[in-house]
Design a binder for these strands. Structure first.
Lengths: 200, 200
DNA sequence: CCAGAACATGACCTCTCGGTCAAGTTGCTA
DNA sequence: TAGCAACTTGACCGAGAGGTCATGTTCTGG
């Protein structure tokens, strides 16, 4: 359902893009309660047009979260070539958190469990992060008992933590990313009380 | 609005307690979308009874999250007498996460911003955590650049991280609490890239 | 440039939600 | 135990949600 067989008409393609942008913005601001009507208004189209492109609200969420995963995957793959693998992992987390600070869409993924397309993109992201973490671990940049899934789960922690403040400094998440990253280093690591999670 | 002037009638007091329990359970399961009707059904009363006790949904949320804060505050104060202040802080985080794993109500606090009663209880919790952290810092159990507000913000991180897994092991959060707590230790701490947040 | 397919529109449907209230029921006190 | 205030009940309301569709508009290939 990602790419239609026949190419879209020019105006339809434009509207689809506007809708996805509006959806990302509305979901980030209002959470799951963002209404289809508001998304349509923000995109500058009528309500019916939204449903012409995405049959249900869930389908729109799927498209939005899919795009979100794909972006992170591309970032992770780009960083696989970096010379310093430890710095590459930190860079990945930093850019991912920065994205999330602007547009927090991570919560959407809980709604899309069961969708095959999202699952595929999610697995791709997981795999890319796994490769990034493996390199960092082999280089001794992170503790040996950490795996890719751990990082996958911890990506959102810094931004989420900051969210409990009413008017947080937009860069405060960097503080918590640094703390968590210190917890990932091999120096002074205490034994973990629970085995690594299995995927999925 | 916490304590009524006149004591409640026996049946009313019982219903109020049942309602708060039902609300906590429903909010934890369904999030903010939990409906007043479902909460009423779960408590075994009619819908009108809910509104007889809590005039609006927000008022019910306020009562629920207030109770949540009060519990954590009591826990923090209890631990202030512990011999090992570092272990006491870890114990606080462990019990808090364990609570949250059963009943995740932390997200409710974002809705109740502006309510004076919740703000008071929230400040009390913040203060209690501050005392706990101060003791741990003076004992050299946590790095010197950490303050109580940091811990306040990080409480929910381990459970939240685990939430991205579809069917997570109910104890997996202990792994991420251990990682984050390692990041809080003085050994091998790197300089933090952002100053501590101000309260509130 | 025009015919017709592709697309956009907004009034309309149904359903569920938070919230109200007159009428009935129950616990407490004198 | 009688009587009244306190409490409960469930039918009801308006608002707003997701979703539909007949009609009107616009792009595009020939």
């Amino acid at each position: 359902m990602t790419k239609p067989e026949r190419p879209l008409r020019a105006d339809a393609a434009r509207n689809r893009r506007l809708l996805l942008e509006a959806a990302a913005a509305e979901f980030a601001e209002r959470g799951l309660d963002a209404s289809m009507a508001d998304i349509a208004r923000r995109a500058g189209v009528a309500k019916g047009t939204v449903f012409a492109h995405f049959a249900t609200k869930e389908e729109l969420i799927v498209a939005t979260v899919g795009h979100y995963f794909a972006e992170l995957t591309a970032l992770a793959r780009r960083l696989l070539d970096a010379a310093d693998s430890g710095a590459a992992l930190l860079e990945f987390l930093t850019v991912a958190c920065g994205n999330q600070q602007q547009h927090d869409l991570a919560f959407l993924q809980t709604v899309t469990e069961g969708d095959s397309e999202v699952t595929r993109l999610r697995n791709e992201l997981h795999e890319s992060i796994g490769a990034l973490v493996d390199r960092a671990r082999e280089a001794g940049a992170v503790r040996p008992d950490i795996i890719g899934t751990d990082i996958f789960l911890l990506i959102c922690a810094p931004v989420h933590a900051v969210g409990f403040l009413a008017k947080p400094d937009p860069d405060l998440w960097r503080r918590y990313l640094a703390i968590i990253f210190d917890g990932l280093r091999p120096e002074g690591a205490s034994p973990l009380p629970h085995p690594a999670p299995t995927w999925p």
